[in-house]
């Protein structure tokens, strides 16, 4: 157990470290002169000013010195200033973060509820019309572009029927984006849950449980669901990181003020400090979620807990 945990924490730290290298290098991979590109849109920037910015960003230093400077700034919580508007990057991101987390969490709950129930039921009824029907539904859910689903929902329920607001910050504006993101991922979860549960149903120990004369409900709940839930939980963790990724697109459809919307704006404006900050924050989020899921996994599975 202790070895398992230290290993996981080690992996998490490694991920963050590799990300800092990648993010610090980002500005150098860009084809052309990053300073030129960043300020190309601003009027009347003189070559002297560009040179000054270059010095300020440390671009004239050797690459490892730049990396050192970058890390020491990050550790102190200084993610730099945005190019447009000169706002502190970290404050801006932290301010938007709760919106994204809220959207992803609510969507995960929707996706997990729908997906696990559909998947479990399809596995239990495998080979029947119920199974086929559920899986066709799931497949259609998986095949639809979620930004398209989002737009359709938006126009039907917000524009035409006017049941819900088109954009905003309250819970009513959360309904449509959460459903969009949730439904799109419920299909994936349903398919994975089904195959995981079918794996369990084919295990020898389920045959043993039947041979013992247990009630069908007991077998399904105590033996199949309990054992089958362990891979599903791991999968939900992974799914949450996918939701964070999907949130970037959905936020743009619904004008939901999360970090995803900020990120797309940053890309259009080539606001590199903001892009760097976004990737770092995203990395920390992903790593934290995976760590929590690994912990949960260890708690659920005695084979890990007691090793």
């Amino acid at each position: 157990m202790f070895r398992y945990l230290t290993h996981r924490i080690g992996t998490a730290l490694l991920t963050v470290w590799i990300t800092t290298i990648a993010v610090a290098m980002l500005i150098h991979i860009v084809p052309g002169d990053p300073v030129q590109i960043m300020y190309a849109q601003s009027q009347g920037t003189t070559p002297e000013q560009l040179e000054e910015i270059r010095t300020r960003l440390g671009l004239n230093e050797p690459i490892w010195v730049q990396y050192g400077m970058f890390v020491s700034r990050i550790v102190q919580g200084d993610f730099g200033q945005t190019i447009r508007g000169n706002q502190p990057v970290l404050d801006l991101l932290i301010g938007r973060l709760p919106n994204t987390l809220l959207l992803a969490s609510v969507s995960l709950v929707i996706a997990a509820l729908v997906g696990v129930v559909f998947g479990f039921f399809a596995a239990y009824k495998r080979g029947t019309a119920v199974d086929t029907g559920l899986m066709i539904t799931a497949l259609i859910g998986v095949s639809m572009p979620h930004f398209w689903l989002g737009l359709i929902l938006l126009f039907v329920f917000a524009v035409n029927l006017a049941w819900l607001p088109v954009a905003g910050e309250d819970w009513r504006s959360l309904v449509l984006p959460a459903i969009t993101l949730g439904v799109a991922n419920a299909g994936i979860i349903a398919r994975l849950t089904r195959s995981s549960m079918i794996d369990i149903l084919n295990q020898d120990f389920v045959r043993t449980a039947r041979a013992k004369g247990l009630h069908k409900g007991t077998i399904l709940y105590r033996h199949v669901l309990m054992a089958g839930l362990i891979p599903v939980v791991t999968m939900l963790g992974l799914q949450f990181t996918y939701m964070l990724g999907g949130a970037i697109v959905v936020e743009n459809v619904f004008a939901w003020n999360g970090i995803g919307r900020l990120a797309i704006q940053a890309i259009f404006q080539r606001d590199y400090p903001l892009i760097q900050g976004f990737i770092l924050i995203f990395a920390c989020l992903v790593v934290t979620v995976s760590l929590i899921m690994d912990l949960l996994y260890a708690v659920l599975d005695p084979r890990v807990r007691l090793s």
Partner: peptide, 16 residues
């Protein structure tokens, strides 16, 4: 009527 099986490694539920 009860039954025992060949595979002792997989015939018991690992999480109970």
């Amino acid at each position: 009527i009860s039954m025992i099986f060949q595979e002792p490694m997989t015939s018991l539920n690992p999480v109970l």
